[in-house]
Design a protein around this nucleic acid. Structure first.
Lengths: 185, 185
DNA sequence: CAAGAAAGTTTAGGCATGTTAACTCTCGGA
DNA sequence: TCCGAGAGTTAACATGCCTAAACTTTCTTG
Protein backbone atom coordinates (compact mmCIF):
# COMPACT_ATOMS: atom_id res chain seq x y z
CA UNK A 1 0.00 0.00 0.00
CA UNK A 2 2.84 2.34 -0.73
CA UNK A 3 1.62 4.16 -3.80
CA UNK A 4 2.48 7.42 -2.12
CA UNK A 5 6.17 6.59 -2.05
CA UNK A 6 6.28 6.37 -5.81
CA UNK A 7 5.94 10.14 -5.84
CA UNK A 8 9.71 10.31 -5.82
CA UNK A 9 10.04 7.76 -8.57
CA UNK A 10 8.12 9.62 -11.27
CA UNK A 11 10.04 9.92 -14.51
CA UNK A 12 10.57 13.59 -13.84
CA UNK A 13 10.07 15.95 -10.94
CA UNK A 14 8.18 19.20 -10.97
CA UNK A 15 11.43 21.15 -11.30
CA UNK A 16 12.75 19.02 -14.11
CA UNK A 17 9.54 19.42 -16.06
CA UNK A 18 9.92 23.17 -15.93
CA UNK A 19 13.56 23.13 -16.92
CA UNK A 20 12.68 21.02 -19.94
CA UNK A 21 9.88 23.37 -20.87
CA UNK A 22 12.15 26.36 -20.50
CA UNK A 23 14.73 24.84 -22.83
CA UNK A 24 12.06 23.96 -25.36
CA UNK A 25 10.60 27.45 -25.24
CA UNK A 26 13.98 29.16 -25.62
CA UNK A 27 14.94 26.89 -28.49
CA UNK A 28 11.67 27.84 -30.07
CA UNK A 29 11.88 31.59 -29.43
CA UNK A 30 15.55 32.28 -30.03
CA UNK A 31 16.89 29.18 -31.67
CA UNK A 32 19.15 28.22 -28.79
CA UNK A 33 19.09 27.85 -25.02
CA UNK A 34 21.90 29.12 -22.81
CA UNK A 35 22.35 28.61 -19.10
CA UNK A 36 21.75 32.26 -18.30
CA UNK A 37 18.54 32.42 -20.31
CA UNK A 38 17.20 29.37 -18.57
CA UNK A 39 18.10 30.88 -15.22
CA UNK A 40 16.34 34.14 -16.06
CA UNK A 41 13.28 32.42 -17.37
CA UNK A 42 12.87 30.22 -14.33
CA UNK A 43 13.99 32.74 -11.76
CA UNK A 44 16.80 30.56 -10.41
CA UNK A 45 20.54 31.07 -10.18
CA UNK A 46 22.88 30.04 -12.97
CA UNK A 47 24.61 27.58 -10.70
CA UNK A 48 21.29 25.95 -10.05
CA UNK A 49 20.82 25.56 -13.77
CA UNK A 50 24.26 24.04 -14.20
CA UNK A 51 23.63 21.41 -11.60
CA UNK A 52 20.15 20.62 -12.82
CA UNK A 53 21.50 20.20 -16.34
CA UNK A 54 23.96 17.65 -15.02
CA UNK A 55 21.08 15.75 -13.53
CA UNK A 56 18.98 15.99 -16.69
CA UNK A 57 21.91 14.89 -18.79
CA UNK A 58 22.49 11.84 -16.63
CA UNK A 59 18.88 10.90 -17.32
CA UNK A 60 19.28 11.33 -21.04
CA UNK A 61 16.94 14.29 -21.29
CA UNK A 62 19.36 16.99 -22.48
CA UNK A 63 22.73 17.34 -24.16
CA UNK A 64 25.00 19.96 -22.68
CA UNK A 65 28.73 20.32 -22.88
CA UNK A 66 30.40 22.84 -20.56
CA UNK A 67 30.11 26.45 -21.76
CA UNK A 68 27.90 25.35 -24.62
CA UNK A 69 24.25 25.58 -25.45
CA UNK A 70 21.65 23.12 -24.27
CA UNK A 71 19.80 20.72 -26.52
CA UNK A 72 16.88 18.50 -25.69
CA UNK A 73 17.22 14.85 -26.56
CA UNK A 74 14.26 13.25 -28.31
CA UNK A 75 13.10 11.92 -24.97
CA UNK A 76 13.51 15.29 -23.32
CA UNK A 77 11.57 16.98 -26.07
CA UNK A 78 8.81 14.45 -25.78
CA UNK A 79 8.51 15.03 -22.06
CA UNK A 80 8.54 18.80 -22.50
CA UNK A 81 5.78 18.64 -25.08
CA UNK A 82 3.74 16.21 -23.08
CA UNK A 83 3.95 18.35 -19.97
CA UNK A 84 2.94 21.46 -21.86
CA UNK A 85 -0.01 19.75 -23.47
CA UNK A 86 -1.08 18.47 -20.10
CA UNK A 87 -0.96 21.96 -18.69
CA UNK A 88 -2.99 23.47 -21.47
CA UNK A 89 -5.50 20.69 -21.19
CA UNK A 90 -5.85 21.01 -17.43
CA UNK A 91 -6.11 24.74 -17.67
CA UNK A 92 -8.92 24.59 -20.21
CA UNK A 93 -10.72 21.88 -18.32
CA UNK A 94 -10.54 23.71 -15.03
CA UNK A 95 -11.48 27.12 -16.29
CA UNK A 96 -13.86 26.37 -19.16
CA UNK A 97 -15.57 23.20 -18.06
CA UNK A 98 -15.45 23.61 -14.31
CA UNK A 99 -15.60 27.38 -14.27
CA UNK A 100 -12.69 27.82 -11.90
CA UNK A 101 -11.08 31.28 -11.96
CA UNK A 102 -8.30 31.57 -14.58
CA UNK A 103 -5.55 32.30 -12.10
CA UNK A 104 -6.46 29.37 -9.91
CA UNK A 105 -6.86 27.11 -12.92
CA UNK A 106 -3.42 28.02 -14.15
CA UNK A 107 -1.78 27.48 -10.82
CA UNK A 108 -3.46 24.13 -10.36
CA UNK A 109 -2.51 23.09 -13.87
CA UNK A 110 1.10 24.04 -13.24
CA UNK A 111 1.27 21.95 -10.08
CA UNK A 112 -0.31 18.89 -11.62
CA UNK A 113 0.85 18.90 -15.23
CA UNK A 114 3.74 16.49 -14.74
CA UNK A 115 1.81 14.06 -12.55
CA UNK A 116 -1.10 13.15 -14.77
CA UNK A 117 -0.78 9.76 -16.41
CA UNK A 118 -1.03 9.47 -20.17
CA UNK A 119 -4.17 7.40 -19.78
CA UNK A 120 -5.91 10.05 -17.71
CA UNK A 121 -4.73 12.85 -19.99
CA UNK A 122 -6.08 11.16 -23.08
CA UNK A 123 -9.47 10.62 -21.53
CA UNK A 124 -9.59 14.08 -20.05
CA UNK A 125 -8.89 15.50 -23.47
CA UNK A 126 -11.74 13.46 -24.86
CA UNK A 127 -14.09 14.70 -22.16
CA UNK A 128 -13.04 18.29 -22.50
CA UNK A 129 -13.37 18.46 -26.25
CA UNK A 130 -16.69 16.69 -26.04
CA UNK A 131 -18.15 19.01 -23.44
CA UNK A 132 -16.94 22.08 -25.35
CA UNK A 133 -18.42 20.83 -28.62
CA UNK A 134 -21.71 21.58 -30.32
CA UNK A 135 -22.94 18.04 -29.80
CA UNK A 136 -26.55 18.18 -28.59
CA UNK A 137 -25.66 16.29 -25.44
CA UNK A 138 -22.95 18.83 -24.73
CA UNK A 139 -25.35 21.70 -25.17
CA UNK A 140 -27.80 20.03 -22.82
CA UNK A 141 -25.05 19.44 -20.36
CA UNK A 142 -23.95 23.05 -20.27
CA UNK A 143 -27.49 24.21 -19.78
CA UNK A 144 -28.23 21.75 -17.01
CA UNK A 145 -24.89 21.89 -15.25
CA UNK A 146 -25.23 25.58 -14.70
CA UNK A 147 -27.94 24.96 -12.13
CA UNK A 148 -26.43 22.01 -10.37
CA UNK A 149 -26.11 22.42 -6.61
CA UNK A 150 -22.79 22.41 -4.89
CA UNK A 151 -23.22 20.69 -1.55
CA UNK A 152 -23.80 17.05 -0.69
CA UNK A 153 -26.84 17.88 1.37
CA UNK A 154 -28.40 18.87 -1.93
CA UNK A 155 -27.25 16.15 -4.25
CA UNK A 156 -27.07 13.25 -1.80
CA UNK A 157 -28.49 14.14 1.61
CA UNK A 158 -26.54 12.35 4.30
CA UNK A 159 -24.93 9.84 2.01
CA UNK A 160 -22.35 11.13 -0.41
CA UNK A 161 -19.93 8.32 -1.19
CA UNK A 162 -17.24 10.77 -2.15
CA UNK A 163 -17.31 13.07 0.81
CA UNK A 164 -18.17 10.65 3.58
CA UNK A 165 -19.14 12.28 6.82
CA UNK A 166 -18.19 15.85 6.04
CA UNK A 167 -19.08 17.35 2.70
CA UNK A 168 -16.00 18.46 0.82
CA UNK A 169 -17.66 21.75 0.11
CA UNK A 170 -18.23 22.43 3.77
CA UNK A 171 -14.70 21.62 4.78
CA UNK A 172 -13.10 23.31 1.80
CA UNK A 173 -14.92 26.55 1.90
CA UNK A 174 -14.92 26.95 5.64
CA UNK A 175 -11.99 28.99 6.95
CA UNK A 176 -9.29 26.95 8.66
CA UNK A 177 -9.67 26.33 12.39
CA UNK A 178 -7.70 28.44 14.85
CA UNK A 179 -4.19 27.51 13.89
CA UNK A 180 -2.53 27.86 17.29
CA UNK A 181 -2.75 24.19 18.18
CA UNK A 182 -5.07 24.82 21.06
CA UNK A 183 -8.12 22.51 21.00
CA UNK A 184 -9.92 24.43 23.73
CA UNK A 185 -11.35 21.34 25.47
CA UNK B 1 5.97 34.24 -14.17
CA UNK B 2 7.14 31.95 -11.45
CA UNK B 3 4.05 29.96 -10.61
CA UNK B 4 6.09 26.81 -10.79
CA UNK B 5 8.25 27.84 -7.87
CA UNK B 6 5.27 27.95 -5.57
CA UNK B 7 5.28 24.17 -5.69
CA UNK B 8 7.49 24.25 -2.63
CA UNK B 9 5.25 26.73 -0.86
CA UNK B 10 2.08 24.67 -0.77
CA UNK B 11 0.61 24.38 2.70
CA UNK B 12 1.69 20.77 2.85
CA UNK B 13 3.90 18.49 0.81
CA UNK B 14 3.02 15.12 -0.58
CA UNK B 15 4.82 13.40 2.30
CA UNK B 16 3.17 15.50 4.94
CA UNK B 17 -0.27 14.81 3.53
CA UNK B 18 0.31 11.09 3.88
CA UNK B 19 1.67 11.35 7.40
CA UNK B 20 -1.43 13.27 8.41
CA UNK B 21 -3.67 10.73 6.77
CA UNK B 22 -1.85 7.89 8.49
CA UNK B 23 -2.31 9.51 11.88
CA UNK B 24 -5.99 10.12 11.20
CA UNK B 25 -6.51 6.55 10.07
CA UNK B 26 -4.71 5.06 13.09
CA UNK B 27 -6.63 7.27 15.48
CA UNK B 28 -9.75 6.05 13.80
CA UNK B 29 -8.87 2.35 13.74
CA UNK B 30 -7.14 1.88 17.06
CA UNK B 31 -7.89 5.01 19.02
CA UNK B 32 -4.30 6.24 19.09
CA UNK B 33 -1.32 6.71 16.82
CA UNK B 34 2.20 5.72 17.81
CA UNK B 35 5.42 6.37 15.98
CA UNK B 36 5.96 2.72 15.15
CA UNK B 37 2.46 2.29 13.75
CA UNK B 38 2.87 5.30 11.53
CA UNK B 39 6.21 3.96 10.34
CA UNK B 40 4.72 0.56 9.52
CA UNK B 41 1.74 2.03 7.76
CA UNK B 42 3.82 4.31 5.56
CA UNK B 43 6.71 1.94 5.05
CA UNK B 44 9.33 4.33 6.44
CA UNK B 45 11.73 4.08 9.36
CA UNK B 46 10.75 5.17 12.83
CA UNK B 47 13.42 7.81 12.86
CA UNK B 48 11.95 9.24 9.71
CA UNK B 49 8.62 9.50 11.48
CA UNK B 50 10.18 11.24 14.46
CA UNK B 51 11.76 13.90 12.33
CA UNK B 52 8.67 14.43 10.22
CA UNK B 53 6.60 14.81 13.36
CA UNK B 54 8.94 17.55 14.49
CA UNK B 55 8.32 19.31 11.23
CA UNK B 56 4.56 18.84 11.39
CA UNK B 57 4.49 20.03 14.97
CA UNK B 58 6.37 23.19 14.07
CA UNK B 59 3.63 23.88 11.53
CA UNK B 60 0.90 23.34 14.07
CA UNK B 61 -0.47 20.21 12.42
CA UNK B 62 0.15 17.64 15.15
CA UNK B 63 0.80 17.45 18.88
CA UNK B 64 3.50 15.04 19.93
CA UNK B 65 5.57 14.92 23.06
CA UNK B 66 8.58 12.63 23.12
CA UNK B 67 7.70 8.97 23.72
CA UNK B 68 4.02 9.82 23.61
CA UNK B 69 1.22 9.31 21.16
CA UNK B 70 0.48 11.63 18.26
CA UNK B 71 -2.59 13.81 18.02
CA UNK B 72 -3.79 15.87 15.10
CA UNK B 73 -4.53 19.50 15.76
CA UNK B 74 -7.80 20.84 14.35
CA UNK B 75 -5.86 22.22 11.41
CA UNK B 76 -4.05 18.93 10.87
CA UNK B 77 -7.31 17.03 10.98
CA UNK B 78 -8.86 19.39 8.50
CA UNK B 79 -5.98 18.92 6.08
CA UNK B 80 -6.07 15.15 6.48
CA UNK B 81 -9.80 15.05 5.77
CA UNK B 82 -9.52 17.42 2.87
CA UNK B 83 -6.75 15.40 1.27
CA UNK B 84 -8.67 12.18 1.67
CA UNK B 85 -11.81 13.66 0.16
CA UNK B 86 -9.79 14.97 -2.73
CA UNK B 87 -8.36 11.55 -3.35
CA UNK B 88 -11.72 9.82 -3.31
CA UNK B 89 -13.12 12.46 -5.58
CA UNK B 90 -10.28 12.24 -8.07
CA UNK B 91 -10.39 8.49 -8.03
CA UNK B 92 -14.11 8.39 -8.80
CA UNK B 93 -13.80 11.05 -11.46
CA UNK B 94 -10.92 9.34 -13.20
CA UNK B 95 -12.30 5.83 -13.11
CA UNK B 96 -16.05 6.35 -13.37
CA UNK B 97 -16.35 9.44 -15.50
CA UNK B 98 -13.22 9.17 -17.59
CA UNK B 99 -13.05 5.40 -17.60
CA UNK B 100 -9.40 5.20 -16.66
CA UNK B 101 -8.30 1.85 -15.21
CA UNK B 102 -8.76 1.64 -11.43
CA UNK B 103 -5.11 1.15 -10.62
CA UNK B 104 -4.05 4.10 -12.73
CA UNK B 105 -6.86 6.23 -11.36
CA UNK B 106 -5.77 5.48 -7.82
CA UNK B 107 -2.15 6.22 -8.47
CA UNK B 108 -2.97 9.48 -10.20
CA UNK B 109 -5.32 10.47 -7.41
CA UNK B 110 -2.63 9.77 -4.83
CA UNK B 111 -0.11 11.96 -6.61
CA UNK B 112 -2.47 14.86 -7.07
CA UNK B 113 -4.69 14.81 -4.01
CA UNK B 114 -2.77 17.41 -2.05
CA UNK B 115 -2.29 19.78 -4.98
CA UNK B 116 -5.84 20.43 -6.05
CA UNK B 117 -7.16 23.80 -4.95
CA UNK B 118 -10.37 23.96 -2.94
CA UNK B 119 -12.02 25.85 -5.77
CA UNK B 120 -11.21 23.17 -8.30
CA UNK B 121 -12.18 20.38 -5.92
CA UNK B 122 -15.57 21.88 -5.25
CA UNK B 123 -16.34 22.26 -8.92
CA UNK B 124 -15.00 18.85 -9.77
CA UNK B 125 -17.28 17.37 -7.15
CA UNK B 126 -20.19 19.19 -8.70
CA UNK B 127 -19.31 17.91 -12.16
CA UNK B 128 -18.75 14.37 -10.99
CA UNK B 129 -21.98 14.07 -9.06
CA UNK B 130 -23.86 15.63 -11.93
CA UNK B 131 -22.46 13.32 -14.55
CA UNK B 132 -23.11 10.28 -12.36
CA UNK B 133 -26.69 11.32 -11.68
CA UNK B 134 -29.96 10.34 -13.32
CA UNK B 135 -30.46 13.82 -14.71
CA UNK B 136 -31.59 13.52 -18.35
CA UNK B 137 -28.63 15.56 -19.53
CA UNK B 138 -26.32 13.20 -17.67
CA UNK B 139 -27.93 10.18 -19.28
CA UNK B 140 -27.55 11.77 -22.68
CA UNK B 141 -23.99 12.60 -21.93
CA UNK B 142 -23.07 9.06 -21.00
CA UNK B 143 -24.69 7.71 -24.11
CA UNK B 144 -23.01 10.20 -26.42
CA UNK B 145 -19.63 10.31 -24.74
CA UNK B 146 -19.18 6.61 -25.23
CA UNK B 147 -18.74 7.16 -28.96
CA UNK B 148 -16.59 10.26 -28.86
CA UNK B 149 -13.33 9.98 -30.79
CA UNK B 150 -9.99 10.25 -29.10
CA UNK B 151 -7.65 12.02 -31.46
CA UNK B 152 -7.50 15.63 -32.55
CA UNK B 153 -7.56 14.68 -36.20
CA UNK B 154 -11.11 13.53 -35.49
CA UNK B 155 -12.44 16.27 -33.27
CA UNK B 156 -10.51 19.23 -34.67
CA UNK B 157 -8.52 18.36 -37.77
CA UNK B 158 -5.34 20.34 -37.84
CA UNK B 159 -6.39 22.88 -35.28
CA UNK B 160 -6.76 21.67 -31.72
CA UNK B 161 -6.14 24.57 -29.37
CA UNK B 162 -5.20 22.24 -26.58
CA UNK B 163 -2.73 20.03 -28.30
CA UNK B 164 -1.12 22.49 -30.68
CA UNK B 165 1.05 20.91 -33.34
CA UNK B 166 1.17 17.37 -32.01
CA UNK B 167 -1.96 15.74 -30.72
CA UNK B 168 -1.61 14.74 -27.10
CA UNK B 169 -2.96 11.36 -27.93
CA UNK B 170 -0.30 10.74 -30.51
CA UNK B 171 2.54 11.80 -28.28
CA UNK B 172 1.17 10.11 -25.17
CA UNK B 173 0.38 6.77 -26.62
CA UNK B 174 3.42 6.50 -28.80
CA UNK B 175 6.34 4.66 -27.16
CA UNK B 176 9.19 6.90 -26.00
CA UNK B 177 11.95 7.59 -28.52
CA UNK B 178 15.20 5.68 -28.30
CA UNK B 179 16.43 6.78 -24.91
CA UNK B 180 20.18 6.62 -25.50
CA UNK B 181 20.57 10.29 -26.35
CA UNK B 182 21.67 9.51 -29.87
CA UNK B 183 19.66 11.49 -32.41
CA UNK B 184 21.08 9.54 -35.33
CA UNK B 185 21.38 12.58 -37.60
C1' DC C 1 46.62 40.65 -29.23
C1' DA C 2 45.49 41.70 -24.58
C1' DA C 3 42.37 43.11 -21.01
C1' DG C 4 37.96 43.56 -19.17
C1' DA C 5 33.15 42.08 -19.47
C1' DA C 6 30.03 38.46 -19.81
C1' DA C 7 28.85 33.76 -19.33
C1' DG C 8 29.38 29.49 -16.95
C1' DT C 9 31.18 26.40 -13.33
C1' DT C 10 32.73 24.98 -8.82
C1' DT C 11 32.57 25.09 -3.96
C1' DA C 12 30.38 25.37 0.28
C1' DG C 13 26.29 25.50 2.51
C1' DG C 14 20.96 25.27 3.66
C1' DC C 15 16.53 22.77 3.90
C1' DA C 16 13.46 18.67 3.28
C1' DT C 17 13.11 13.93 3.53
C1' DG C 18 14.74 9.73 3.89
C1' DT C 19 18.27 5.89 5.74
C1' DT C 20 21.08 2.99 9.38
C1' DA C 21 23.26 2.46 13.72
C1' DA C 22 23.66 3.50 18.30
C1' DC C 23 21.71 5.34 22.26
C1' DT C 24 17.78 6.26 25.79
C1' DC C 25 13.42 5.86 27.73
C1' DT C 26 9.34 3.19 29.51
C1' DC C 27 6.99 -0.51 31.27
C1' DG C 28 5.82 -5.14 32.67
C1' DG C 29 7.26 -9.20 35.03
C1' DA C 30 10.30 -12.05 38.11
C1' DT D 1 12.75 -3.33 42.94
C1' DC D 2 15.27 -3.69 38.96
C1' DC D 3 16.18 -5.38 34.39
C1' DG D 4 15.52 -6.42 29.75
C1' DA D 5 12.60 -5.95 25.56
C1' DG D 6 10.58 -2.98 22.77
C1' DA D 7 9.53 1.74 21.46
C1' DG D 8 11.44 6.05 20.42
C1' DT D 9 15.17 9.33 19.69
C1' DT D 10 19.56 11.12 18.22
C1' DA D 11 23.54 11.21 15.22
C1' DA D 12 25.65 10.84 10.97
C1' DC D 13 24.97 10.54 6.39
C1' DA D 14 22.65 10.59 1.35
C1' DT D 15 19.94 12.89 -2.29
C1' DG D 16 17.45 16.61 -4.60
C1' DC D 17 17.25 21.28 -5.39
C1' DC D 18 18.26 25.68 -4.37
C1' DT D 19 21.70 29.90 -3.03
C1' DA D 20 25.93 33.08 -2.84
C1' DA D 21 30.62 33.72 -3.63
C1' DA D 22 34.70 32.68 -5.88
C1' DC D 23 36.83 30.99 -9.73
C1' DT D 24 37.41 29.84 -14.95
C1' DT D 25 36.35 30.19 -19.64
C1' DT D 26 34.91 32.68 -23.63
C1' DC D 27 33.76 36.77 -26.10
C1' DT D 28 34.38 41.50 -27.50
C1' DT D 29 36.63 45.36 -28.44
C1' DG D 30 40.31 48.99 -28.52
Amino acid sequence: MDIWKRFGEKEITHSMAHYLQAVAALKNDKGFARVGDIADRLGVSKSGVTSMLRSLQSRGLVDHEPYGCVELTPLGLQLARRTESNRRLLSVFLSEILGVAESVAEEDACMIEHLVSPQAAVELLRLTTFLRSQHPAALQFREAFRNTPRTCSDHAPGDCDICGATCLVDSLLRPPPAADAGPAA
